[in-house]
């Protein structure tokens, strides 16, 4: 018995929504980066589900690339967090409003 692809899409949408809510409501920058990881994982689930159901391996290659980008994003993002913390001893996004109008 095969699980319908709609279930995978719903799961992916739910995880993406949780990640989006996390980005919007949390103030800790580390949690915001973790929520971005959640959203990337949601798209990866989507890619793998479609790749499996359509019988095409390209989706899994795209997940591979998304993983590469996620690793790069984490390295740069955590470097920015460390630099920010060194600059003002805080990782609360409310403290960084220099670019806010």
């Amino acid at each position: 018995m095969v699980v319908p692809i709609t279930y995978y899409l719903m799961l992916s949408g739910l995880v993406f929504l949780i990640g989006l809510v996390g980005v919007l409501i949390r103030r800790n920058i580390i949690i915001i980066l973790l929520s971005i990881e959640l959203m990337l994982n949601a798209t990866n689930i989507n890619f793998v589900a479609f790749s499996s159901y359509l019988g095409n391996l390209s989706g899994q290659v795209f997940v591979f690339f998304a993983l590469t980008v996620a690793a790069a994003e984490v390295a740069v993002g955590l470097a920015i967090i460390v630099a920010l913390y060194r600059h003002s001893a805080s990782i609360n996004v409310d403290d960084f409003r220099l670019l806010k109008w």
């Binding site: 919007l24 949390r26 103030r27 800790n28 460390v82 805080s90 609360n92 409310d94």
Partner: peptide
């Protein structure tokens, strides 16, 4: 590693 390096103990939560 970064969480333990920064060691932030402030209790701020949501917007």
């Amino acid at each position: 590693f970064v969480v333990m390096l920064l060691n932030v103990k402030r209790e701020e939560r949501f917007h």
